[in-house]
Structures are given as structure tokens and as C-alpha cells.
Design a protein around this nucleic acid. Structure first.
Length: 287
DNA sequence: TGCGTTGTTTCACC
DNA sequence: CGGTGAAACAACGC
């Protein structure tokens, strides 16, 4: 489920492995992925050079020569793979199908074949993702329509006072507020659970009831969760079960397992309409 | 087989 | 206008 860490991992792979390469051929097996695209096909990318790979919130932006930018959203189940002519492979995003299995596979919908022989495969088991091709000059306006808040991590990421201001106006659960991309951009269901556990805040606490004294810890928790996710190249969650690496994730996808901090049994509840994992001892409901 | 799944949008309503 | 809550939607695997 590509959230910020998965998308950032993909961005880094594309940047390191494909920038400055030229597109020889593009295959689109599932044209509906382009149904909201200003330019309805990817044909204009043929013979162009990949110039840069950028990210805003969970959106990946690939800039090509001749001022064309491809915006991609991977939604729930997008997976991106780069395979070089010598067989070296780099994969990130959704862990299903098996990233080390055959490519292309049943849910591989788009292929970019570069003149070097490297291939970029985009797969999407759920087919919820989308591609939008547009001139570079229209990217800023297209991004503005999403009303994204400040980035959750990185340079220019949200400040403590910005976070405080934004939470003060919300009475809905802190978890739902943090998932709102107009409040801050990048958190999804996995990492928000991790951030709140780290900060010892119950996920159903009204956002404006989180004490100011807890906000520095919350911001640290957000950064910790996302940085850890990026460091691992994304978390592996399959059918609501986590496959932790070095103990991360600590709670998400781990119902019934002991909390790594206190040993209490991790519970799963619903907050808003979201499956939510937390430790009832570390994150007590506010009395 | 109907349910669960998530990011996002839309809608009615206060 | 802005916040809220609920519903809808995309499509698939179990």
C-alpha cells in the first residue's frame, strides 16, 4: 500500500537507475489508468529522456525532456520495478505479487522500455491507481487542486506550530485528522498507527484534545515512522498481517501480538472507517 | 460469495 | 465557508 515511504523509495530507484535514459517504447495494457489524463496516451514520451523523478505527498512525478511530466498515483496496490539489461532488479511498492517473481505478470499494466535495455514496469493489483500526462507548466496547477498540506517529512516539512494550528480546529479523531492530506501530506494507515503508538496517543482522541505537551512527541513519532519506513524501503503488509523487519512496524498489522514496548496485547479497532492497531497500555483512552 | 481493503472524492448538513 | 460524517468508488482475493 504505497504511502509516502513506498513512493519515496520508488522515486529514489527511478532517479538512481533511470534518469538520463531515453524511452524507446511504451506499452499500456490497461488504458483506463489514463482516463483522467490531460494527454490521453503515453505516446509523446517515446524518444524523450527522463530528466527527474520528484514526489509530492504520495504522488510521483516523472519529468521528461520536451517539457512533459507524468504524474502517477499508486493508490492501494501499485508496484514499480526497474529491471536492467543485465538482470539487476529494483522493486518497491505493494509487496504482492512477489517482487522477485516473473515480470511482466498479470497485473503489470504499463511498461517503459528504455534504449539502454532497462525496463520500468508498473503493476497494480487493484487497478485503483492513475497516470496523468501533462506539460510541465501545468503540473503546479494540477498539484494545487489536491490542496495538500505541508509535507510530513523532509525539507520544508510541517513545523510544530503549523501542526498545532491545524489540529486545534478539528474535533475528529487525531488519526483521521492526520490521514487528511490537506492537514499534512504523506501519512497513510500504516504509518499513522506507528506514529501514534510512538507518541503514546490513543488514535480516537479528538485532535483538539491532544495536549500541547504531547505535540512534539507526535511530530517526532511522525518523522520516526516515515523515516523508518523509507529506511526499510516500505513496510510489508499482506492481508492485514505485518511482516516486520527489525521490529518495524511495531503495531500495525500485529493484532494479538505483544507490544514491543510494554508487552500488552495489541488490539485492532475501527476509527472512522479505518482498521486501527494500537497498544491499550501505551496508548490509553483519555479519561 | 459477500466482505474487506485504502486513498480520495462527493454529498448533505450544521 | 469550513468542519463533520457517511457513502461511494475503483477491482480484486479470500
Amino acid at each position: 500500500m504505497p504511502e509516502l515511504p513506498e513512493v519515496e523509495t520508488i522515486r529514489r530507484i527511478v532517479e538512481q537507475e533511470l534518469v538520463s535514459q531515453s524511452v524507446a517504447e511504451v506499452l499500456v495494457r490497461l488504458p483506463k489508468l489514463l482516463r483522467t489524463s490531460p494527454i490521453p496516451t503515453l505516446e509523446p514520451l517515446i524518444d524523450q529522456t527522463l530528466v527527474a523523478a520528484r514526489r509530492r505527498a504520495k504522488i510521483l512525478l516523472l519529468d521528461f525532456s520536451a517539457d512533459q511530466t507524468l504524474m502517477m498515483h499508486l493508490k492501494l496496490a501499485g508496484q514499480v520495478a526497474v529491471v536492467h539489461a543485465d538482470g539487476r532488479r529494483f522493486v518497491a511498492g505493494h509487496p504482492v505479487p512477489d517482487p522477485s517473481g516473473p515480470l511482466p505478470h498479470k497485473s503489470t499494466h504499463v511498461e517503459f522500455r528504455f534504449s539502454s535495455g532497462s525496463i520500468l514496469y508498473v503493476s497494480d493489483l487493484r487497478q485503483f491507481g492513475w497516470f496523468r500526462l501533462m506539460p510541465l507548466c501545468e503540473v503546479e496547477r494540477a498539484l494545487a487542486e489536491f490542496n495538500f498540506g505541508p509535507e510530513a517529512v523532509g525539507t520544508d516539512s510541517i513545523s510544530l506550530s503549523q501542526l498545532q494550528d491545524r489540529l486545534a480546529r478539528r474535533s475528529i479523531p487525531i488519526k483521521i485528522t492526520l490521514l487528511d492530506q490537506s492537514v499534512l501530506a504523506g501519512l497513510g494507515n500504516i504509518y499513522v498507527d506507528e506514529a501514534l503508538h510512538r507518541a503514546k496517543i490513543h488514535p480516537a482522541t479528538p485532535a483538539n484534545s491532544v495536549p500541547a505537551s504531547a505535540l512534539p512527541g507526535l511530530l517526532d513519532g511522525i518523522h520516526w515512522a516515515l523515516d523508518e519506513g523509507i529506511a526499510q524501503g516500505g513496510a510489508k503488509i499482506v492481508h492485514n498481517k505485518a511482516y516486520p523487519v527489525n521490529g518495524f512496524p511495531e503495531v500495525h498489522g500485529r493484532r494479538g501480538e505483544p507490544c514491543p514496548v510494554c508487552g500488552a496485547v495489541i488490539e485492532k479497532i475501527r476509527v472512522g472507517a479505518r482498521g486501527t492497531y494500537f497498544c491499550p497500555t501505551c496508548q490509553p483512552a483519555k479519561s
